[in-house]
């Protein structure tokens, strides 16, 4: 990669507006995410977290504004460098785990089969099992393993730890920390801040369709003298 691309922000939202019908979900939102680091996308339900993530992955088109990923608008070219974990079970039920590994290896050149099979073994998932026979939590683990086995520039994880047990949660966070590409970034949306706070470098707080706060976790601790979780509870007090 040359110096030019390294200076570009990895992800940039410029005055993005998104409406669902007459309802405005994102209201002129702007933020950037640099290279390297883990960013928490935080906000209460309905604050636009999933909308932002869908926009990054081209599953929605903004009404106004611009989204740039490594300098490119969301397209099949950005899908090459973005590894996306949706917030639901999205893998075909009839497929075996090993079929899905083949599928990912076929379509994503940055997919690391060795890493995927290591993680499957570690979490005691049989590659011959069909998705429909797995529990909800195990399905989530398979999804996360596939997504994290790519050497992507930007990982976008929508509620990655919601359905799994605390022990697996620790392993998954550890996996996320260890496995991601050093020059890449991870964007994690969640409201389980407490569990994830220790791995976050930066946070973006969403409020009413705007980025209410973009700051590093260190500066939050310094400036407000509280954890991100405490600040979140304070900012979004009902």
């Amino acid at each position: 990669m040359d110096d030019m691309t390294n200076e570009l922000p990895l992800l940039e939202f410029r005055n993005v507006v998104k409406n669902y019908g007459s309802k405005r979900v994102l209201d002129d939102i702007s933020f950037t995410i640099g290279r390297g680091g883990i960013v928490g996308l935080l906000g209460p339900n309905g604050s636009g977290k999933t909308t932002i993530i869908k926009l990054i992955n081209g599953l929605l088109v903004p009404n106004m504004g611009e989204i740039l990923i490594n300098g490119m608008p969301p397209s099949k070219d950005t899908a090459v460098i973005v590894s996306y974990l949706p917030e639901r079970n999205y893998l075909p039920d009839a497929s075996r785990v090993c079929d899905l590994v083949d599928f990912f290896a076929d379509f994503y050149r940055d997919f690391d089969r060795v890493k995927a099979s290591e993680m499957l073994t570690r979490l005691h998932i049989n590659p011959k099992d069909r998705m429909r026979t797995l529990s909800k939590g195990t399905k989530e683990k398979v999804q996360l393993i596939l997504v994290m086995s790519r050497r992507a520039l930007l990982y976008v994880l929508d509620e990655p730890i919601g359905g799994v047990d605390p022990a697996a949660r620790d392993y998954i966070l550890e996996t996320i920390l260890q496995n991601y590409n050093e020059s890449g970034s991870i964007l994690i949306s969640t409201h389980l801040i407490n569990d994830i706070e220790k791995v976050l470098d930066d946070v973006i707080f969403l409020s009413e369709g705007k980025a209410a706060l973009c700051a590093s976790v260190a500066s939050i601790r310094e400036k407000h003298n509280m954890t991100v979780d405490e600040l979140f509870r304070e900012v979004y007090r009902c």
Partner: peptide
């Protein structure tokens, strides 16, 4: 495969 939950996989492929 396109508009159901599997669409999250199909429509985010680099194609």
């Amino acid at each position: 495969n396109v508009y159901g939950d599997e669409g999250y996989l199909t429509l985010t492929l680099p194609v």
